[in-house]
């Protein structure tokens, strides 16, 4: 816990110093979100577009977790910071995962920009049936996304493959989250990591999801988080047992 405070301080300062990077990331996300939102609105109307908006917000959380947490390992490696962090008692994966709170900024900004675009198109994504349940599902998704980011970061350390290539979730989940799912099977889909809370969030827009689904997503969250913790510890142990921290990517 003592180590978390300096990490949070570090990330907070860096948000200020690298503001342009954060803002541009938000703009990029919002352009992609707008592209899909416009398609959804023009093909299937405002009701579907409202759901798609929140599916895209969910996607933004997953995508940002992927590159802000997973991608940070690449960055730490290039700067030669993996070993100094380890030596100071901080796991590089934890250092990267502690960026989790920063995700709120680009996600919030991109969602806000897309919200404004929605108003321009003529529909209001804030007309939600169950706003508190929606917020809860996004919070659960945020936790799962952090775990995913940590798993990605650990896999980068293990394989030396850059996170941008390993991060298939960002690309694949864009399509999957927007796809039609049978609402009656939500209880089953809720168990799917990352997708589950995304679908639950969509359901919250136009209806009230049964509370049972929250049990399902909570179970998945706990399992995923425990897996992320044990996986990252095993990877770090293995890496140190082998040849230590190696260069990542092709460099």
């Amino acid at each position: 816990m003592r180590k978390i405070k300096p990490l949070i301080w570090l990330h907070a300062i860096r948000v200020r110093r690298y503001l342009l990077s954060i803002l541009s990331g938000s703009v990029t996300d919002s352009i992609w979100m707008a592209v899909f939102l416009i398609g959804a609105y023009s093909s299937q109307g405002p009701t579907y577009a409202r759901e798609v908006f929140w599916a895209l917000a969910a996607w933004s959380i997953i995508a940002n977790a992927g590159w802000m947490i997973g991608g940070w390992i690449d960055y730490l490696s290039e700067l030669g910071l993996l070993e100094p962090l380890d030596f100071s008692g901080v796991s590089p994966v934890v250092a990267a995962a502690s960026r989790s709170f920063v995700i709120a900024i680009p996600t919030g900004l991109s969602s806000l920009i897309t919200l404004l675009i929605s108003f321009q198109l003529g529909f209001n994504p804030l007309e939600i049936s169950s706003p508190w349940l929606l917020a809860l599902s996004l919070l659960i998704l945020w936790t799962q996304a952090t775990a995913y980011g940590a798993i990605l970061a650990s896999t980068v350390l293990l394989t030396s493959v850059p996170s941008a290539l390993l991060d298939i979730a960002a690309l694949a989940y864009l399509g999957l989250l927007l796809a039609n799912y049978p609402a009656g099977n939500l209880q089953t889909f809720a168990f799917l990591p990352l997708l589950g809370p995304g679908y639950v969030a969509r359901q919250c827009v136009s209806g009230n999801p049964p509370l049972g689904v929250f049990l399902a997503v909570t179970v998945t969250t706990i399992v995923l988080s425990l897996f992320a913790i044990s996986y990252s510890r095993s990877v770090e142990k293995l890496v140190k047992k082998r040849a230590g921290y190696r260069a990542i990517a092709l460099h």
Partner: peptide
């Protein structure tokens, strides 16, 4: 790039996966 790729078969495999993922995303639009 030949020298780097020959040492990273895993990376090359992952690289080849990406266009299919883009395809899935395009299906989501249409």
């Amino acid at each position: 790039w030949f020298s780097l790729y020959k040492r990273s078969p895993l990376l090359v495999s992952v690289l080849l996966l990406r266009p299919y993922l883009v395809l899935i995303a395009l299906f989501a639009i249409e």
